[in-house]
Computed example of a mutant assay.
Amino acid sequence: MAAPGFIAIGSGPAGLSAAETFRSKHPGIPVRILTVDPALPYARPPLSKGYLCGREAKRDLHSAGWFGRNNVELIRGVTVDRIDTAGQEVVTAGGQRYPYWHLVVASGAAAVKLDIPGAEAALTLRSFGDAVALKMAARYADSAVVIGGGLIGCEAAACLAASGVDTALVAAEAVPLQRRFGLEAGERVVKILSDNGVGFVGETTVTEIGDSCVVLDDGTTVQADLVVSATGMRPDIRLAESAGLETRDGRIVVDEHMHASARNVYAAGDVALAHNVTARRRIRAEHWRDAAHEGLVAGLTAAGFSASWDQVPGFSCTIGDSVLKYSGWGNYETCRLVDNHNGFTVWYETGGDVVGVLTLNADEDHRRAEELLRA
Rank of each mutant, 00 (worst) to 15 (best):
V222T: 06
V198H: 07
D218C: 11
S212N: 04
C213Q: 09
E173V: 02
A168T: 14
R234T: 15
E203D: 13
L226C: 04
R180L: 14
I237E: 11
A243Y: 10
V215G: 03
V201N: 02
A174N: 12
A174T: 14
V189M: 04
V190F: 01
T205C: 03
L226M: 00
E203N: 14
A230Q: 05
E241V: 07
G197T: 03
V227P: 10
V227N: 09
L193I: 06
S229M: 07
L193C: 05
G244V: 08
D225S: 09
T167L: 03
V175C: 08
D217F: 04
G202V: 06
R188L: 09
D211I: 03
T204C: 04
Q178W: 01
T205E: 12
G186M: 13
N196E: 11
G219E: 03
K191T: 11
V215M: 02
V189E: 12
A240R: 13
R188N: 08
D195M: 06
E203P: 01
R234L: 12
T167Y: 11
I237P: 12
P235N: 02
L239V: 06
A185S: 14
S229W: 07
M233N: 09
K191Q: 12
T204N: 01
P235L: 09
L193K: 01
V175W: 09
T204G: 04
T205K: 13
R188P: 11
G244I: 08
M233Y: 09
V201R: 11
L216E: 00
K191W: 08
G197A: 08
V170I: 15
A172I: 11
A243L: 08
A171M: 13
R180Q: 15
G210E: 05
V227W: 10
E184G: 06
V175I: 02
D225K: 04
D195N: 15
A224H: 10
A174V: 01
A230I: 02
G199N: 14
R179I: 00
E173D: 15
G197M: 00
Q178R: 15
E208M: 01
K191A: 14
L226T: 02
V215W: 05
C213P: 00
V206R: 05
E187V: 06
E203M: 06
T207V: 12
T207M: 02
R238T: 15
T207D: 05
T231L: 01
V228C: 07
T167M: 00
R180S: 14
A240F: 04
D211E: 14
V228H: 07
F200G: 02
